[in-house]
């Protein structure tokens, strides 16, 4: 069963249709990449998966998004539960102006799931920070401000913040575009580790990145999902001329 199933999804910003009948399946414990030129609707699609778009005025969404077996757009959906399950990593690392520990336990704390004994907090931090490869580096600095970290570490803390909530799906919108190549490489290898336990959907402008880390890739153009399939196939034998044009650099 796919982790995420998108069924004939249309999205309108006012009268502008940003997503046109998208249908696709994203596999569990897999990295799926969404590529396409600027403005084609990658972020819009990604933000449909945790209903981040709900905040926007004049937005209209039709169709289904199934996570597990539940349609998240069905009435009565528990949005808090949804967002605990589906975490999001943003372009710019955005830890809160709090300590590293407070950042990691933020979600649990605010949802009232934090055990009262402080000893257990460290255990939670241990689990979440180990998962993002930061525990050894930061275990003695948990009280320091998260903003004192490097951008790459900040991005990892943001991922740890999601891991601590025990999400199953992580949405990433160009998570490396604020990072240098070295840091990018490290975050990529982190993603490959995380894939063992998480379903990852990543939007990226960087085709090499998609090719390096993802198993499946979707190519979008002007609100359409033009082609979707195994990454190797998309990059070597695309079925659609427009995909071919894009990966050979004709859209820039």
């Amino acid at each position: 069963m796919p982790a995420i199933a998108i069924n004939n999804l249309d999205l309108y910003y006012g009268s502008f249709q940003a997503l046109k009948g998208i249908t696709s399946f994203f596999k569990e414990k897999t990295i799926t990449a969404l590529i396409g030129p600027s403005g084609c609707g990658k972020s819009t699609l990604l933000r449909c998966l945790n209903r981040m778009n709900d905040l926007i005025d004049g937005i209209r969404i039709e169709g289904q998004v199934l996570i597990g077996d539940k349609d998240i757009y069905a009435p009565g959906t528990d949005l808090i539960q949804l967002r605990k399950e589906v975490g999001m990593v943003f372009q710019r690392p955005n830890p809160f102006p709090l300590s590293i520990l407070e950042n990691v336990i933020f979600g649990l704390k605010i949802h009232g799931q934090l055990p009262s004994e402080k000893k257990k907090w460290e255990k939670i931090a241990f689990r979440a920070l180990s998962a993002v490869g930061l525990w050894e580096t930061l275990k003695d600095r948990l009280k320091e401000s998260a903003l004192s970290l490097t951008l790459e570490q900040q991005q990892r803390v943001c991922i740890a913040r999601i891991v601590a909530l025990q999400s199953r799906i992580v949405l990433m919108d160009e998570p490396c575009s604020a990072l240098d190549p070295m840091a990018t490489e490290k975050i990529e290898s982190l993603m490959l580790n995380l894939k063992e336990n998480f379903t990852i959907v990543i939007v990226t402008h960087n085709m090499q990145q998609a090719a390096r880390i993802s198993e499946e890739t979707g190519f979008m153009l002007l609100g359409d999902l033009i082609e979707f399939g195994p990454t190797g196939q998309i990059f070597t034998k695309p079925q659609d001329d427009r995909t071919n044009d894009y990966i050979t650099g004709r859209y820039g």
Partner: peptide, 27 residues
Amino acid sequence: VPQEYREVAFSLGVGKWKTITRVVLPA
């Protein structure tokens, strides 16, 4: 207070009022 903080809080399932009291006001 950067808009980003509100967005992340929202993405973590934090409601509006809690976002204000726990994220925006402290900052």
